[in-house]
Design a protein around this nucleic acid. Structure first.
Lengths: 345, 345
DNA sequence: TTGTATGCGTTATCAC
DNA sequence: GTGATAACGCATACAA
């Protein structure tokens, strides 16, 4: 029950604290027999160093680099800042400082430039959203060669060994399908991909696969799963044509945060009987959720992704804990009645 | 940017560390003018004590009493143990120990006895699930008189000043209504209260109120909201009679974790077309969720409630942080497709 | 190869 | 009233 200290071990082994410390840190210069004896004791007693004392002694200021898309350009990322601040507040007892860098999510070159700026602050570890697969791959490789631990969230760069926090996109597509299925009859369904300012093609494909798999598993489903890809600039016209071309449409799944575009049109065209499921609690979507035009939103919880990512990194720095390679957050289903608590900072 | 220590303050004020410490801790024996000077400096510099050093010095073993219903008697509480262990693991760097006491959730006398046992371990703070309002009120009063900080979860004892973590039950009733409304037409709805081994009448009433309020707000809803109270022992017969008496029933809301009883009967009577929404991810419910007889479950997240409750208490002990009086967790909507990640420990 | 001394920041005791 | 000093547990430079 008592907590053993180095001093205790030293006493039990009949040596000095210095020797025990040398054994613990494999710093050599210890006689073999003594080392064996001390090791045995450490094992037997299950020695756990006092991490407070260690951090007090080290007296080190940890420096964390954070690189995320600029919330001014895409408001989706704003809540990440909250998550980061939460993690910092939680570890305010330790001296962890962050340098945050924002990049333009529509500009791969900017991503690379900001990475260089970040590197100039010589961070101990890095947390980032690696939107661009190709560029991120090379950047992450560089960090690995410099022995800088990196945590990523939102986008997984499978070519890298960086840790990742996100969601199971395939499964979230299945969830969307299940929701639409449960609130509609057995009419046609549509998957709509609306191009964002930046491409998240992999994201959208995975969600589509999951969505289709649900209906493929469904016995007795005879209708069609339609698909429509829309470029951001042409949204309204192309969407209207699509709706008119498919009068039997009963449900729509928008694979990113742009469901509000579809909702606006459904209201304008008096087709709000068509069920609508989309992603992300941005304000435009929440408005249509409350008005009833959007039925469900799937919450990707960017705040929690950022919070957890940073927390893992900090715990690694101060407590030497291992960082999980991959952590998939639960996927939240949101309707007009449970949305409020998810919006708070 | 630099972090100031007592030593720095002492130097700046031209006094010794001891004097600064006396000022900080209001321990008197300081000349007025010196005190003013030091206070001004502390203010100006925004002095923050190094909590690691403080905890190192204090060298105190914190003793936390935990009192929850016995999971062997009601499996619902099993996940709380996981939550408690998570919080402990997170603060393993500090010397916090817990003494867990389990009480029989059907026995108020046992609750009182276990409280006495817990008190004998002279806990610094206490985390508990106060199932029984009357008994809890007096117990909490006693703890308050002993100046023992108490955190509660699951049940709020409004007569006490103990902190509380839980959910907005009224709102969760509204969520159930919204879900049933979205997956059914405009037929009759039923609220079913099934007595548990122990009464949670307040819980169930709040949920009922919320449920009704949703339909009251709904324009053009002409059908009935039925209500059925069932004693645990007579569940099957009374339920069958109820179903037969209301052939137009389209949806059922079970106000506690006993939805699986209804699901079993719906399957037996070939009435699975009736939509069913209930509470809690216990295994019986999850099975019927996967088979499709239960459409949605509302997740009260007991694991997170316990985790957060303990975390707040520990942060209070080691960092002297304030404990939020009341924290309402977001309410999770669960269907067969997103349930899995919510089940992990 | 080993032991001892010192310091991290805070706190508490003890002389002056 | 005040300042010097020791102690918490760990890490390390230096002396032996």
């Amino acid at each position: 029950m008592k907590k053993y200290t180095i001093k205790d071990i030293a006493q039990l082994a009949g040596v000095s604290k210095g020797t025990v410390d040398r054994v613990i840190h494999n710093r050599g210069n210890v006689a073999k027999d003594v080392e064996q004896k001390v090791r045995a004791l450490l094992e037997e007693i299950n020695y756990q160093p006092n991490l407070l004392a260690r951090n007090l002694k080290n007296n080190k200021i940890f420096n964390i680099g954070v690189l995320i898309p600029d919330p001014e350009i895409d408001a989706y990322w704003a809540v990440c800042i909250d998550g980061i601040n939460s993690a910092l507040a939680e570890f305010s007892a330790f001296d962890v400082r962050i340098n945050t860098f924002l990049y333009d999510p529509t500009d791969t070159a900017d991503f690379l430039i900001r990475n260089e700026h970040m590197l100039e602050t010589s961070p101990d570890v890095i947390l980032m959203v690696p939107l661009f697969y190709k560029e991120a791959t090379s950047v992450l490789q560089h960090y690995q060669s410099l022995n800088i631990q990196v945590g990523t969230f939102n986008n997984q760069i499978t070519s890298s060994s960086a840790s990742f926090i996100g969601q199971d996109l395939y499964q979230s597509g299945r969830i969307a399908a299940k929701l639409l299925h449960s609130i509609s009859k057995n009419g046609d369904m549509a998957i709509i991909h609306i191009d964002e300012k930046y491409k998240n093609a992999v994201h959208m494909q995975e969600k589509e696969k999951g969505f289709k798999s649900y209906y493929a598993d469904l016995e007795g489903f005879e209708s069609s799963i339609l698909k429509c890809k829309i470029k951001y600039v042409e949204t309204e016209d192309k969407l209207r044509d699509f709706l008119n071309a498919h009068p039997n449409l009963e449900g729509i799944f928008v694979t990113n945060s742009k469901a509000y575009h579809v909702a606006r049109l459904l209201e304008a065209e008096h087709k709000t009987h068509i069920k609508l499921v989309g992603y992300d609690l941005i304000s435009q979507n929440v408005n249509y959720l409350n008005s009833g035009t959007i039925d469900f939103l799937i919450h990707q919880n960017p705040r929690q992704q950022a919070y957890l990512g940073l927390k893992y990194l900090i715990e690694h720095l101060v407590f030497d804990k291992q960082i999980p390679e991959k952590f998939l957050l639960p996927i939240d289903i949101i309707n007009s009645e449970n949305v409020t608590p998810f919006l708070r900072p």
